[in-house]
């Protein structure tokens, strides 16, 4: 069986500056992939490029092949026109945006909005059918069908996020991309939404790309993880392996900077400085100026290569047998 999604050598530029620089991703049917990294590293750009939703001014190249289980011919996303993409979006891939609270139409009832999504992509037999399906969708995401009569402002944050997920599922896609779906929610609501996503994967065989800067969220929800830095994937592998034995210094330092209850309360030294400006990238490894292990060799660009079974890292020194005591990187203007 071939992969549900294959992205090869995806490049995105804006005003000549590289925003994404050769991203490769593969996603199997029903798999959950986590995209991790800090603001501006290219996580959301990757998702928008896949949906061809990047605003004017951005240019994208590379191939993106989608093979939904219910479609014979593979879909070559990069060759699709805007009209062709409208068939793909929602029907095959849907996107749950960051800050979903504000993505609902404030003057339309919830059921009207879901019905619109369905009518846009299908010719349902009757209005009654649509009504039944809306009720089913709301139940699937853990809401009572009666909530369909409400407006967005009459819902809590968690309920709105559930409605957004119901909308994303309305046309039975095989892949859902969720961009920071729980960032605006607090722990309890976050746990409920994550449990829902997990349940939906099992129940509907849905594949999921979960974008989050919160490594804890990804560790609990995903099978595989890809860590991005300055427009590239710097490490990828099964979630458990990457968290147990990270192979890129950036992943290692990110994990160290998160306190884990029951572990050490001592705060690790933060990563100095901030990510580079895409218009002014450092020579060689992009993490080099902030890396405590940087050496002469790092002036050459490291390729993403397999360093342990199923785990790849873009670091000359990987695999790391152990992490030496870090000498602090000399960063100009340490205030991030």
């Amino acid at each position: 069986m071939s992969a549900l999604l294959e992205i090869r050598d995806l490049h995105v530029t804006h005003a000549g500056r590289p925003i994404l620089d050769g991203v490769d991703l593969t996603l199997e049917r029903g798999e959950a992939l986590g995209l991790a990294g800090e603001s501006g590293c290219g996580k959301t750009t990757t998702a928008l490029a896949l949906m061809k939703l990047l605003p004017g001014g951005f240019k994208q190249t590379g191939t993106m092949t989608l093979r939904p289980p219910d479609v014979e011919e593979p879909i070559n996303v990069e060759r699709r026109t805007e009209a062709g993409m409208q068939v793909v979006r929602w029907r095959h891939v849907s996107l749950v945006f960051q800050g979903a609270m504000n993505s609902l139409d404030p003057v339309k009832r919830v059921d009207t909005q879901i019905a619109q999504a369905i009518y846009l992509h299908e010719r349902p037999k009757s209005a009654k059918d649509v009504g039944a399906r809306i009720g089913e969708l709301l139940t699937t995401v853990g809401l009572t069908p009666a909530l369909g009569r409400r407006y967005a402002h009459q819902l809590s944050g968690g309920q709105r996020q559930r409605v957004m997920i119901a909308l994303a599922l309305a046309c039975r896609p095989s892949l859902v991309i969720a961009d920071e779906p729980t960032t605006a929610l607090d722990v309890v609501m976050q746990a409920q939404i994550l449990a829902l996503l997990e349940h939906l994967r099992e129940q509907l065989g849905l594949a999921l790309i979960l974008i989050s800067h919160d490594l804890g969220v990804l560790s609990e929800t995903c099978d595989r993880i890809a860590v991005m830095y300055a427009g590239r994937i710097v490490e990828t592998g099964p979630v458990r392996e990457v968290f147990a034995a990270p192979q890129h210094p950036y992943t290692k330092r990110l994990l160290d900077s998160l306190p884990v209850i029951g572990g050490s309360r001592e705060m690790a030294a933060p990563i100095p400085g901030g990510p580079p400006d895409p218009g002014d990238l450092p020579q060689g490894c992009r993490f080099r100026p902030r890396c405590p292990y940087a050496a002469e060799k790092c002036l050459e660009d490291p390729a993403l290569r397999e360093v342990r079974p199923a785990q790849a890292a873009a670091c000359h020194f990987a695999p790391w047998a152990e992490w030496p005591a870090a000498h602090e990187a000399a960063v100009e203007g340490a205030a991030g």
Binding site: V187, V188, A191, G216, V217, S219, F243, V260, I261
Partner: peptide
């Protein structure tokens, strides 16, 4: 319940 809801970046 709050503590149980905290997502943990761990290998387990």
């Amino acid at each position: 319940a709050l503590v149980a809801a905290v997502p943990v970046p761990s290998a387990e």
